[in-house]
């Protein structure tokens, strides 16, 4: 059976931690599911994007096909996902 896979592009610290390049095929029906799968398949990423409660860290933005997404945003086969630090700080 074929499963839907999105393409997650990692940069910077996340890319370094995950290893094996910047692009990763990850399964998940929603953004949060996909991020949980990403963290579990790349153990070094655990806790970097989702906290212990499974909540997306406050100053992280997730984009699906260039549009900012929410944790419950649906993800489809071939969608392009980016995980980026938000514009914040001082």
């Amino acid at each position: 059976m074929l499963v839907d896979m999105a393409i997650v592009r990692l940069r910077g610290q996340l890319e370094k931690l995950a290893g094996s390049g910047s692009q990763h095929e990850v399964q998940g029906a929603t953004v949060n599911e996909l991020l949980a799968t990403l963290e579990s398949t790349h153990g070094a990423l655990e806790g970097w994007i989702l906290d212990e409660r499974g909540v997306l860290r406050r100053h992280i933005n997730v984009f699906v096909n260039g549009e900012i997404a929410q944790p419950d945003t649906a993800v489809s086969d071939g969608d392009r996902i980016e995980i980026l630090p938000a514009i914040s700080g001082g």
């Binding site: 931690l17 070094a44 655990e46 806790g47 906290d51 212990e52 409660r53 499974g54 909540v55």
Partner: peptide, 16 residues
């Protein structure tokens, strides 16, 4: 290097 294990139990209602 990041140390490991510096986190609260996964799936709970609190985060470090």
């Amino acid at each position: 290097q990041p140390a490991t294990g510096v986190a609260l139990p996964k799936g709970g209602d609190q985060a470090l």
